[in-house]
Simulated assay, not measured.
Amino acid sequence: MVNIRLGPPANSWAVSTNHVDLRRPVPPSRVVTLVARPQRITVDLARCALVVVDMQNDFCHPDGWLAAIGVDIAPARRPIAPLRRLLSWWRSGGSAVIWLNWGNRPDRANLPPGVLHVYDPDGSGGGIGDVVRPGGSPTLQAGSWSAAVVDELKPEPSDVYVDKYRMSGFFDTPLDSVLRNLAVTTIFFAGVNSDQCVLATLTDAACIGYDVVLLDDCAATTSPAYCHDATVYNVAQCFGFVSTSDALMGGA
Rank of each mutant, 00 (worst) to 15 (best):
T186N: 03
A225E: 13
R40P: 15
L83A: 11
N234R: 14
Y165W: 14
P79D: 03
W145R: 06
C197I: 05
L153P: 12
G127P: 04
V213Q: 00
G103R: 03
G191D: 11
S29M: 08
S146C: 13
F170P: 07
P155H: 12
S92W: 02
K154A: 15
T185F: 00
V15K: 01
T201G: 07
G94M: 04
Q56W: 00
A190T: 13
W90E: 11
P138M: 08
S245G: 12
R24E: 07
A247W: 05
R30V: 09
H19I: 09
R91M: 06
G169K: 02
P62F: 02
L66Q: 03
L111I: 03
I98P: 03
N3I: 00
F239L: 15
S29R: 15
E152K: 08
F241Q: 11
V31N: 09
N101S: 08
P25M: 07
R47F: 02
E152W: 06
V198Y: 12
L6Q: 05
G135Y: 05
L215K: 08
A205W: 09
N11Y: 06
G94A: 05
D195M: 03
M1G: 11
K164G: 00
L87C: 10
A68D: 06
P134C: 09
K164I: 00
R91E: 08
R105M: 03
D211L: 06
W99L: 06
R37V: 05
V71N: 01
C218V: 03
G240W: 02
Q141Y: 00
T244F: 04
I4S: 09
Q237L: 15
L202H: 03
A205T: 05
V51N: 13
D172T: 11
T185I: 02
G103L: 06
G64I: 03
S168A: 03
G135N: 02
H228L: 09
Y165K: 07
T203C: 06
P134V: 08
V132T: 15
P174N: 13
G251W: 02
T203F: 02
A247N: 15
D122H: 08
T33Y: 06
F171A: 14
S177C: 04
P155Y: 13
C60F: 14
D21Y: 04
S243T: 15
H117L: 04
V178T: 14
I208P: 02
L214R: 09
L50I: 02
V232H: 05
Y233E: 15
L140I: 04
S146Q: 04
S243I: 01
D216K: 13
W13P: 04
S146T: 01
D44I: 09
C238D: 13
G7E: 07
R91V: 04
A247S: 14
A225D: 09
K164L: 02
V53C: 12
I187H: 07
T17D: 14
L215M: 10
A183V: 04
A183L: 07
N234G: 05
F239C: 08
D107S: 00
L175A: 11
R85D: 11
D107V: 01
D21W: 00
V32T: 15
D159G: 11
G251Q: 00
H117I: 00
A252W: 01
D151E: 15
L6F: 14
A14S: 13
Y165T: 07
D216H: 13
L22Y: 10
A68S: 14
V150Y: 10
V198H: 12
D130T: 02
R47A: 12
A236S: 14
S146G: 06
N104S: 00
L215Q: 10
G143S: 12
